[in-house]
Design a protein around this nucleic acid. Structure first.
Lengths: 174, 174
DNA sequence: AGGATCATGTAAGATGTTACATGATTAG
DNA sequence: CTAATCATGTAACATCTTACATGATCCT
């Protein structure tokens, strides 16, 4: 029990509404795609552990063995506790930034190429986010409201990253 | 052998100059602190695996069982390959952004408090980076040059994050 | 002499990824 | 009837964290 934000991601999604493991997977792949990733085996595994711990319960069963889980009061309490009492941990690990440190192994031209490629990737990322933003049917529900805040963060991050990459490429131009 | 950037972090540091596991740990805790974290057991374990694979070799032995490792041509080739041919993977996982999604579980006041706390954390982070920047004796060597680029990224990220958090807090103010 | 620092390693457990395995139901 | 989708789960392996364990050497 070290970091375990997967647990809180599952609780958070179930706090919005009950869902099956399959439903949750779709939400990890859409709304949470740029925020927290999870694999199918993680999600099913975590649902089992949460149910054992009484933080969620099977609220309905459906066709094809479908099990719909709902958050329990204990689960909601744990979610609130995490949101209000637990310091966010940032184990910073950025593959793309790590590379920057070692760009000295490459020629200037190669290093510049890497940085400009990075700028391009971020530009594409930003375009994708804007597209997604336009396609989403934003409502007034809490998840929409806060999803918009997260979306704005993603856009600002991509913009910042792209600008920085272009600036960094320039720094390497004698 | 899935992501394995730890391996490349070690190779990258050894490409700069030979070092012991102990030396590497200090560099993970300083230069790479905001870029890639590693624990002692990971570092010693990875050095063993890299030596087995012929990507590094023991270049000198010293007191207290000290073993200094140097990168081999094969290791340098692997580093170059990673830098130029392998797409950066971003398994985006942001604890602090995940929370934003679930802020609907809290009252408006609590949510605003969270966001303003986030702004404060980022302001402190920025101050810490500026202090570190001033304290570092930047040279003209490749690692210094590229370290400065990474430092600039960190500063821009903190600034952006803080501004965003204040903006988001305002959005929740009716 | 004794505390700080240097120095390496192992073990157990938590977390994450990939691949495998299976089958029911629905829509065209 | 058949392809797509829904639906759950396990196994093996990779990665990361925490804690334990040990001892040499340097500085004052």
């Amino acid at each position: 029990m070290v970091g375990m934000s997967l647990r809180h991601a599952v609780l958070g999604l179930l706090a919005d509404r009950p869902a099956s493991g399959y439903d949750l997977m779709k939400r990890f792949e859409t709304s949470l795609a740029h925020v927290w990733s999870a694999t199918q085996s993680q999600v099913y595994g975590e649902l089992g552990k949460l149910a054992d711990g009484g933080l969620v319960e099977v609220s309905a069963e459906g066709p094809r063995g479908r099990k719909e889980y709902a958050i329990t009061p204990a689960g909601r309490a744990e979610l609130r506790h995490w949101l209000t009492e637990v310091e966010p941990v940032r184990t910073r690990r950025s593959d793309s930034l790590l590379r920057v440190f070692f760009l000295g192994e490459l020629t200037r031209l190669e290093a510049r190429t890497y940085l400009l490629g990075e700028a391009e990737r971020q530009a594409r990322q930003l375009a994708g986010l804007k597209e997604a933003e336009a396609a989403i049917d934003w409502g007034d529900d809490p998840l929409s409201v806060h999803g918009r805040l997260a979306m704005e963060y993603g856009k600002r991050l991509s913009e910042m990253h792209e600008e920085w990459a272009r600036w960094a490429a320039e720094q390497l131009t004698p």
